[in-house]
Structure formats: C-alpha cells, structure tokens
Design a protein around this nucleic acid. Structure first.
Lengths: 197, 197
DNA sequence: TTCTCCATGTAAGTAGTTACATGATTGG
DNA sequence: CCAATCATGTAACTACTTACATGGAGAA
C-alpha cells in the first residue's frame, strides 16, 4: 500500500499533468508572464498543431503554482489586476521530464477534409473535383500563412533556439505534401477524362 | 417563428448531423452492414485520419434510421441478434449534400509530438536529439504501415473508386515529409557539432 | 470446455469548447 | 467619449472516451 492518505499540501512533482498544463508551463518557460500573454503566444506560435482556449488557462496556472512549478506575483497596472508568473527550478525539471518521457508519442489526426475525400466516390465527378480542389486550396493557404510567419521563427533560430523554426517547417512540408498529392491526382483525372473523349 | 412544435416523426433531412453520423452513413454506403462491421471497416480504412469508438455507433444508427437515411432489418444468425442496414435514397442525398457543402473545411491538428518539439530547447542537447529521433521514427513507422496497406486501396482503385487510395497516399506523403524534415535537421545539427570540435 | 470472435448496449467520466460576465486602460 | 485591447473568471454544454455488462457462435 502506498501512503496516499498523507496531507495534501506538499504535493511533489510525481503526478503527470494534463497536456494543457504543459502548454502553459512551456509558454511560461519561454517568457510568457500573464494568462493573457500565454493565450496570445499560443495563437502566434503553436496554433498550427495545438490550440487552447482561454478558459482552462487560469485554472492551469493555479494548479501549477500550487504544485510549485511556477511562482506568481500580483503586478497590477493602475487599478487593473494582473498576475505574473515565472517558472521555478521544479517547473524546469517537470518540463524536462515531460519532454524526455520515452513512451511512444501517439499521432492522432482528425480531419474532416480527408474524411470527405475518402467518401468522395458517393458524389458526381464535378462535385468530387470541387472537394479535391477545396482540400488542395486549404493546404496551399496553410503553406502561404506559415511561410509568412517564417521570419519570426528564423529570428528565434538565429538567437539560438531552432525548435520553433523546426516545427514551422514541418507544418510547411506537411501541407505542401498534401497539396502536391492533390495536384498529382487532379492531373491524372484530367488526363483520363481527355483520354475518354 | 418557425413551426418547430409540430410532431417529431416525419423529420426530413434539413438538420445537419454530427460528424460521427456521417462516418456511419458513409460506411453503410460503402457496404458495411452491422454496427460491428462499421467499426471494423473504420479501423481498417480511415483510422489514420479519423477514429470512432464503438459506443456512439449504435445511437448513430438509430438516429439515421429514424431520419430515414438508412433502413434496418433484423438478421440474426441462429439465436445471436444482429441488425443490418442499407443506405436509402434520402441517405445518399444527405451524404452528397455533406460532401458538397462549400463552406471552408477546417484543419485542426493536435499533436503532442510537435508540441514537445516546439519546447525542446528546454532540455539538454542529447535529450532534444532523442525527442527528434522519436518524432522521426514515429512518422517513418507510419509510412511503413500505410505502405503495407496500400495494395488493398490499390484494389479499390482498380475497381473504380480511387478515393481510398488518394487519402492513403496523402497520409504516406505527409508523414514522409515530416520524417524528411527531421532527417534534414538532424544532419544539420550533426554538422554543427562536428564543426564545433 | 474454453478461447476467440461476433454483436449490442449502457454508464460514468473527462477534456475540452463556446458563451457569458465583468471591468480597467489606452489611443484616437 | 468610444472603441479596442488588456485581463480574469464562470457556467453550461458537447463530444467524445473508457470501462463495464451481456450473451451467442464457432473453432480448437
């Protein structure tokens, strides 16, 4: 039997946190201070492979502080309240432990675009073609957006942190690959249609 | 005011269904008969971009039948109960309407691998390297698995439905692209480390 | 007889979302 | 003074998931 009935206050790192808590912890480690800033930073950087809504950020911060992974101080500007946070040594340790966890990392995609494409045989050729076009354009647009953002990530790279740029380039490559497959398929279809005439 | 208080029975197509219902409808349209078969088919075909657990399938089938999009008949084998379904004309129409919906299709990825990679600067170089390796291997394995499955999709293509093969190739392409970016980055790091000596 | 597969269903829990609510500060 | 932005918090809902429960059929 483990001694689980001991008083709760100390609560060392031991337990695993839910994913959003690691996002919050990670953002604080990169310099985000208030809950508001965390949300901003998420929307600017990782939104292409992770989103978080504002609501769960504040309970997350509370919990991280209770666990001693971040330390918070009130820092109002004028009469507007504001609470800022810094990562602690325990927080850095917990973040590293999460990153170093050697269990296999699952990959789960849940995409309506691919789902529709899979069933596309259920609709007439022109509609299927439009659907393929829509999926292609979607990826092409994503490539464009990510490319626009690239300079900011390149700056971080120049300052010694290459990982934001790495993930950005994975996003670009990923969507470019999807767009390419769409294009190849559309060409093949066009050829077949011409051959049929 | 719309006349919403009318008796519920007729209930024409009008309303949009939740995504899992379209998965079920689509699978029935492709020949899946029982709830059990639907689950099997999902796990064999679309699990790489969509999953569904067994639980919500049966309520979905009930609802689709109430709406007249599929028709069900009891077909027990021996004393073991079993209910089989077919798509109706109304069902085909609803499926087509969903496929043809011209609103932009959202793309949302939620991947712990990329998330960890983004924060990888928080850990020492060897651990970051291991993490990159893990992400790379994950994609490489996915490419291998999908390639193994390819013949089945190629068969469907030969029989006149190219879309399962298309979605499969998109899966192969984007995982290959991710693995390539990992490889390029790992090489760059290796070079830099050698240069430092 | 026992194991695996076929087949359906429910109950409980969780992880997240949107929408709402509040209010201060800054810039035009 | 009005709009946009900074800043935090809650309540209700939804869309799932896992785990549990049941039981027949076929094969070894």
């Amino acid at each position: 039997m483990t001694d689980a009935t001991a008083g709760s206050p100390p609560n060392p790192v031991s337990e695993e946190l839910p994913n959003p808590a690691y996002v919050v912890l990670g953002m604080v480690s990169l310099g985000a201070r208030s809950g508001y800033e965390i949300k901003q930073d998420v929307d600017r950087s990782i939104r292409f492979f992770w989103t978080i809504s504002q609501a769960p950020i504040y309970p997350s911060l509370e919990r991280l502080e209770r666990d001693g992974l971040i330390s918070g101080h009130d820092q109002p500007s004028g009469r507007r309240r504001r609470r800022v946070f810094e990562i602690t040594d325990a927080g850095r340790t917990a973040l590293r432990a999460w990153l170093a966890d050697s269990r296999p990392i699952p990959f789960e995609l849940r995409d309506v675009g691919l789902l529709k494409l899979f069933f596309a045989d259920a609709c007439p050729p022109e509609e299927a073609r439009d659907l393929l076009q829509a999926v292609r354009r979607r990826s092409q647009q994503r490539v464009d957006t990510l490319t626009t953002i690239r300079p900011a990530a390149a700056e971080a790279d120049a300052r010694g942190n290459p990982y934001p740029l790495l993930t950005l380039e994975m996003g670009i490559a990923f969507h470019q690959a999807m767009a390419d497959v769409c294009a190849r398929f559309a060409d093949r279809r066009a050829l077949e249609t011409t051959a049929d005439l």
